[in-house]
Each structure stands twice: as C-alpha cells, then as structure tokens.
Design a protein around this nucleic acid. Structure first.
Lengths: 207, 207
DNA sequence: GTCTATATCCCGATAGAC
DNA sequence: GTCTATCGGGATATAGAC
C-alpha cells in the first residue's frame, strides 16, 4: 500500500524508486491538489534528492503521466467490478456511468492526473494504450444498438461525454461537497444514460 | 480590445491596472496555458513591478477568478447570440449546447480559468453571481417540460453535464485538434441534447 | 494610495562526482 | 542510480519613494 522501505544505510537504494515516486505523487496530489504537487516534495517524501527522479522521469509531466496510467488501471478495475458482467446491456452501460462518477470522487488524484493535468497525449504512448481495457468494456453499446455500428459509436460517445461531464461538475463542487454529492451525481449520470438510450434515435439526426 | 496605454513617463500609471492585468492574463493563458500563467509574467507584460498586482488582487487565484468572471460574461453573450430567441424551445436548448462547446474552443483561456483552475467558489461571490445570466437562459427547459419543474431541472442538469463533457473532451484533444474537431464536438453535443429531450421520461426513474 | 526595491523561500532542471 | 551543487525563475511579504 505505502512505499517500500529505505535501504540499510537509511537511504533509498533498492530499485523501485519509480513506483515509490508514483505512490508519493498520488498521496501528494490527494493532499494538496495538482498545483501542490512538485517533484521536489515527492522526492522529499520518498527520501531521495530532488535530482533523483529525473533518472526515471524526463520531467514533471512524465511522472504525472505515470500517475494517469495507474489511474486508468484502477478505473478499469472499478468499472469491471461495479458494472459486473451480469445484467442486461442497458444496465451494464448505466453501471459504467456510475463507476465513472465514483472513480472521479473516490480517486481524485488519479482523475485529476488523467483529465486536468493538461498532459500532451501524443507524447505518452503508454497512456494511450492504457485506454484499451476501458474502450473494450464500452463495447456493450453494440449489443444495445443491435449491431448498428455507427449508432453504437454515437451512443458510446454521448454516454462517455455525459459521464465525464457529471464527474467533472462533481469534482468542481457543483453538486456540493459530501458523500451525498457523489450519490446525486451518480444518480444523475445514471438517469441521463437511460435517457440517452431511450432517445438514441435522435443521436444521428438526418442531415 | 488590448490594454490601455502607458503613462507619460513610460510607466503604467493611469488607474486601470486591474483591467490591464486581466487582459494580460487572458493572453498569457492562451499562449502558455494555466500553468504557464504567473503574476510575475503578467506584471512584466503590463509594465509594472511584480508586486504591483497585489494591490488589486489578494493572490494569484483572485486574478484568475476575475478572468473567470470575464469568461462568464463572454459566455452569456455567446449563448444569447448563437442561441437567439428565435426558434422553438428545443432548438434554443440545442443552440445553447452548441454555444457551450464553441465557447470552450474559441475562448480557451476563459474556459480554463472557469473550469480548470480549481478555484474555491465559496471564496468568490462575484463569480457565483456571474452565473445568473446563464442560469436564466437555461430556463427554457421549463417550456420544454410544460411546467413540470422537477422534470425541467433534471433536463437542465443533464444537458449542462453533457455539454460540459463534450467541451472538456474537446479541450483535451479527444476529438482531434483542428477546427473540424470543434464541428464534431458541437454536432455531438447537439444531437445528445436532442436525445436527452426525446428520452427525458427516463430522467427521473421511479425509485 | 499606488508602485518600486528588495529579501526569502521553493521549484524545475542540469552537470558532474561517487 | 543516486548525490551535491547550482542556475534561473516565480510567489509572498515588507519597507520605503512619490
């Protein structure tokens, strides 16, 4: 859970500094926000000099990208767990929307690193690849749309945008601050998803 | 459009430093992003010392909050213009969703200050008040829902979240980078809005 | 009252020693 | 692989010029 122990000489010395830095960064962002994160403070917490991280990460953004990759792994786990394979396709999609909102609330550091750090996606291939498990799960939309691929993509995009919107509005405090806010945001994302499914015929208006 | 001229002695001296700083901040954020913005650089561009801004703004966040307020004024103008009072209520709501996306694309500095700066809303009353014109325009939903107030609020929330989601995904580059991306995002936000209207009966699921 | 000058502290990043 | 040393720059706060 926490970081590996220091070496025999009191210094950090046994190899997994990279992972230790990612862990420290997540804690740090959780405590002080993205702006409160710094390479120097993360180094201090792990017990190495402020120059040490640069052996593992090219710069600050590269460390944040590693945090974002971790975020996508956690997110995929949450979606897989909460949106269990049981249930009809509609319910699965609704559960994914709920999981999206819950992820934003329960793993703020990861969510922020993923969506608010302004990372240049074209620079981090590993980050692009980490989306694949999530995209794979979004494939339930093809069942809902009975094989119509274009309709499925339109629905997937609409649901993703809606879930993302509710998640970010929740993070910005628009639904309040407590755990009640999470419930509200998740419920609304869920019902919006149902409405999108119900009204999906309007998703591709004839030009 | 740009900032006021310097005083007779080449120094900035005639009173509207506050406005000049907001203007400079907007340009700066447009060029270098939120993280690239600093009080020091904004001061430099206006031609005052780095301590001068603190006479008008308590800290960095206070200046960003002023930028955000400006953003809401511009946003309200865009919505009022693009979503003109003509047309049926449905069309007005769709036009608002489009305007939301276009605002994010065309006024990135303002959008970022408003939604990505992590400003503590409870600290800036002026910022809360600046939402009122926008909220007022969102009232078209009551017409769509034929007076059912609870249904209207649910629809307004869903549309706002969806528009916000498309806007932020666009800003993060998920639809690509050119002006084609803006078109795509605006079209999808518009059709998602239509789908939400069509499927709005599902927005408040029986508990 | 508004701005300048100045001092302190922290951050990002690099170069070279071990 | 990590450390020491170091450079440039930004944020905050205070004292004082006009």
């Amino acid at each position: 859970m926490t970081m590996p122990p220091a070496g025999k000489d009191g210094r950090y010395h046994h190899g997994d500094l990279r992972t230790a830095l990612v862990d420290a960064a997540i804690d740090l962002i959780a405590e002080r926000g993205l702006r409160g994160f710094s390479m120097a403070e993360a180094s201090r917490r792990v017990g190495v000099s402020s120059a040490a991280p640069y052996r593992h990460f090219a710069d600050r953004d590269a460390l944040l990208a590693a945090v974002a990759v971790r975020g996508l792994q956690v997110f995929a786990d949450m979606v897989a767990t909460e949106g269990g394979d049981a249930g009809r396709p509609d319910d699965q999609l609704v559960a994914m929307a709920r999981a999206y909102v819950r992820f934003a609330a329960g793993q703020r550091s990861l969510f922020d690193a993923l969506f608010s750090a302004g990372l240049d996606k074209s620079r981090y291939q590993e980050l692009r690849e980490a989306w694949e498990p999530v995209d794979a799960m979004l494939a339930v939309v093809t069942e809902i749309c009975a094989g119509d691929q274009a309709a499925a993509e339109a629905l997937a995009d609409a649901v993703e945008a809606t879930a993302h919107g509710h998640a970010t509005l929740l993070r910005d405090g628009d639904y309040g601050r407590g755990s009640g806010a999470v419930q509200i945001a998740a419920d609304r994302a869920a019902s919006a998803t149902l409405a999108l499914i119900a009204g999906r015929a309007a998703l591709r208006p004839p030009r």
